[in-house]
Design a protein around this nucleic acid. Sequence first.
DNA 1: ATGGCTACACCTTGTAGA
Length: 260
Amino acid sequence: MKIATWNVNSLHARKERVIAFLEREKPDVLCIQELKCSDEKFPDTLFQDMGYHAAWHGQKAYNGVATLSRFPISFVEKGPEEFDPTFGSRVLITEIEDLRIINIYAINGQEVGSEAFQKKKAWFEQLKDYLLRCEASHTPTVLCGDFNVAPEELDVYDGMDRVKRLLVSPEERTWFRSITELGFTDGFRWLHPEEKSFSWWDYRELSFQKNRGLRIDFVLVSPPLQESLQTARMDREERKGEKPSDHVPVVVELDFHPQA
DNA sequence: ATGGCTACACCTTGTAGA
């Protein structure tokens, strides 16, 4: 199975790129974040015509997550009960046979110590509560999306201005670890323990050209899937050319076949 | 010290992103 996660920063603005990505990579599953699109405007027929089943949890202007799958989706849950609905459309659960896909878009947090930062903390606690309830560690589960945390120094460009501590603060890294400590393996890091490779670059200050990026997008897998990890990479090409998202897809291949 | 890009909305100015 080839599984990709991509924060597209507006599905409408990125439509052509998403189509081209699906045609080029042919992932079995694509988890999309930051749709910035209401449920009514989600282009489900477009994806149907391309051979993808889709589930989506949209919201006007902000947030929004969608999961596309070449396999039929047998279960859909939007923003499980653990999550405060005022935090926006940020979590979408789908099941493909015995495989559970948890597609997430973490709260950004705006500034360390701010009110939004406290919401980010609460959101991670809610995620942990949900993962415990659904016993994610004991079943084949993929937890992927935009975590808005760069968990290790290897995930941060050299010389980052640490006055701006958001995404790299010790607090946020603790929240990230509280999730991985449930038994999840970071697919990219597991396969590439020394590689400094990023999934996001700021639009400003020629950050991509200078490779001043962060790794904040992840495909995490539960223990039953860890040994099935085959390949993982950042689709860096997606940050080039006209109108890119500020994030690139993370693409992971698993030696796993969903079974009823 | 600030703003720097991009996208969206209550759309020429504010908000949020990361």
